[in-house]
Amino acid sequence: MIQFENVTVDKAANIYFGGKVTSRTVFFEDGTKKTLGIMMPGEYEFATVLKEEMDITAGKLQYKLAGGEWKTIDGSGVFYVPANESFQLNVHTIVDYCCSYLEEE
């Protein structure tokens, strides 16, 4: 999906790591939400509350889920992070991403 329709967007940015990671929250009519953002090169660690789908739309990074191995996305790709877990990122180039918050099945 290239664009979203019939949504509400938070005007204020979510800012992390001194501005090296930023996003905007997008709310859908069905109550779900996503964040759209960019990450500058660097090393980061995030923690989840809900299961997350990380859709990388551009850039190069490596990610590591808790207890896992480093994996690389170069250009585009998707990975999933379980609820209540942390994950590490090593961002090599500017990364454009969309994070979807998913209900556990």
Rank of each mutant, 00 (worst) to 15 (best):
G67K: 03
L65Q: 03
Y101C: 04
F17H: 08
G42T: 02
I94Y: 01
T57F: 01
T93D: 11
N84I: 01
G77C: 11
V9F: 01
V7K: 07
G18D: 09
N84S: 11
V26D: 14
M39Q: 06
Y80E: 09
S76P: 06
G37R: 15
K60W: 04
V95K: 04
G31A: 10
L89T: 04
Y44E: 02
F87R: 00
E53P: 08
K64Y: 02
Y80V: 04
R24T: 07
V49R: 03
T22P: 01
G67E: 05
N14H: 14
S23Q: 14
S23T: 11
F87C: 05
T35S: 15
G59S: 08
M40S: 14
I2K: 03
R24C: 06
T48A: 05
F79P: 00
F79A: 04
Q62N: 06
Y101I: 05
Y16R: 09
A47W: 04
L50R: 01
K64S: 00
Q88E: 12
S86V: 07
M1L: 08
T25V: 13
K33Q: 11
A58L: 05
V7Y: 13
I73N: 05
E52R: 06
F4G: 03
E43I: 05
K64P: 00
T35R: 15
F87W: 11
E52Q: 11
K64I: 02
M54A: 07
T93E: 12
T22Y: 02
A83N: 08
V26T: 13
I73Q: 06
K34I: 01
F79Y: 14
G37T: 12
Y16V: 09
T8E: 12
S23I: 14
A12G: 06
Y63E: 03
T22R: 13
G67V: 04
S76N: 12
T72D: 09
E103C: 13
N90D: 11
G68H: 04
M39E: 14
V91G: 11
A83I: 00
Y80I: 09
E69F: 00
F79H: 06
L50N: 05
F17D: 05
K60R: 15
G19T: 05
T93L: 06
K71I: 04
